[in-house]
């Protein structure tokens, strides 16, 4: 097993040059990683509602079929909402990508091993749910291929094996009403 990619560098590589992406992040380090690339109105960070990130992505993807939606979350958050993988595959959104940053552990709570440390394979679960493009990325070449795949249409479920360990926290805004209003205003759907 490789040591894993650097989470900040991996997320930065996926977001670089993709300023049109609408990004939804799961609570904890995934939010900090995306915030470290620069806060922007098209980012929506969950600070709670664990297990709900992928489904927020689906609602957004169905509402905005012309945009690419990227969900960035962790293995623990994804594990809490596994049913969403089935629901999203059945719903058939073509513009939703889920990127799971997998460090085999619950970073926010002391690094306890998650189920993926015990060989639970998230990409295999997604494949079993009917996702067309599932991949587990372990090196820079795989990351580069994922970045290019994100620029094409089609649903993608990608697990990125990242190195364990905490990064300096880059805290995005945590007022949900502010984040929501800012996001909607950017899309032109804010109401007076």
């Amino acid at each position: 097993m490789s040591a894993g990619l650097d989470r900040r560098e991996a997320v930065a590589a996926l977001l670089a040059g993709r300023r049109d992406f609408l990004v939804v992040t799961g609570l904890g380090s995934a939010s900090y990683d995306v915030a470290a690339c620069g806060d922007r109105a098209e980012n929506f960070y969950l600070w709670g509602a664990m297990g709900g990130t992928a489904m927020v992505g689906l609602g957004l993807a169905l509402a905005q079929p012309e945009r690419r939606i990227m969900v960035v979350t962790g293995d623990g958050e994804m594990l809490m909402g596994l049913g969403a993988l089935a629901t999203i595959a059945v719903a058939g959104a073509r513009n939703l990508a889920i990127v799971v940053l997998d460090n085999w552990s619950y970073g926010e709570t002391g690094g306890q091993p998650s189920h993926t440390a015990h060989r639970v394979d998230l990409a295999a679960i997604a494949k079993g749910c009917g996702w067309e493009d599932t991949r587990t990325i372990v090196d820079a070449a795989g990351l580069d291929q994922l970045a290019r795949a994100l620029d094409r249409a089609g649903p993608i479920f990608a697990v990125i094996r990242i190195a364990p360990g905490e990064k300096p926290r880059v805290l995005p805004p945590r007022d949900g009403a502010f984040l929501t209003q800012r996001f909607r205003a950017k899309l032109g759907s804010a109401e007076p």
């Binding site: 609408l22 509602a49 297990g51 992928a54 957004l60 509402a63 909402g81 996001f183 899309l187």
Partner: peptide, 22 residues
């Protein structure tokens, strides 16, 4: 029409839809 595996998925879906103006 979106069939869910569990009801809480629908709460998150509705918030995502709202983010997208729907």
């Amino acid at each position: 029409a979106v069939v869910l595996t569990t009801e809480e998925e629908g709460i998150a879906l509705a918030t995502g839809a709202w983010l997208g103006g729907v």
